[in-house]
């Protein structure tokens, strides 16, 4: 605990951890020569954002189709952010990041879904 952990390699640290059942969470702390994935992720997130912006601003789709498509784009965006920038695949020991992720799905979908339900009353007016 108090010893400096510099002498342990990533693989040794992984072996010491108690929870090895979740294979995809194997730590990947190796340095990349060039951040290819991150740049693709960055460009990808911009493309997804502007796609949604274009669809909303130009009224090219009926309301229901528009709603479905921008919600899909939002889900893709969230997956991209989590996978590329938020290191969801990295970690040691117990996979604590999974629990808040369940929360995210529950709450985000609850919030978005219920907000649509609440605010729909306006659609008959304006």
């Amino acid at each position: 605990m108090s010893e400096s952990e510099q002498s342990i390699t990533v693989d040794e640290a992984y072996e010491q951890d108690n929870d090895k059942s979740i294979k995809f969470l194997r730590p990947r702390f190796h340095a990349e020569a060039f951040p290819t994935v991150q740049i693709f992720g960055y460009v990808g997130s911009l493309v997804l954002t502007f796609a949604a912006y274009f669809l909303v601003m130009n009224h090219v789709l009926p309301v229901l189709a528009l709603l479905i498509i921008i919600l899909t784009l939002a889900a893709l965006q969230a997956a991209l952010q989590l996978g590329v920038f938020m290191h969801v695949q990295e970690g040691r020991g117990m996979a604590w990041q999974i629990i808040p992720l369940y929360l995210v799905f529950l709450i985000a979908f609850g919030m978005v879904g219920m907000s649509i339900w609440i605010m729909l009353f306006k659609s008959g007016v304006s």
Binding site: I107, I118, M119, F121
Partner: peptide, 18 residues
């Protein structure tokens, strides 16, 4: 706590179901 926020604006009139 995440499922009660409309009680701050019941009078907006989002409808009886909401």
């Amino acid at each position: 706590a995440y499922g009660t926020w409309v009680h701050h604006f019941f009078t907006m009139g989002a409808g009886p179901a909401v």
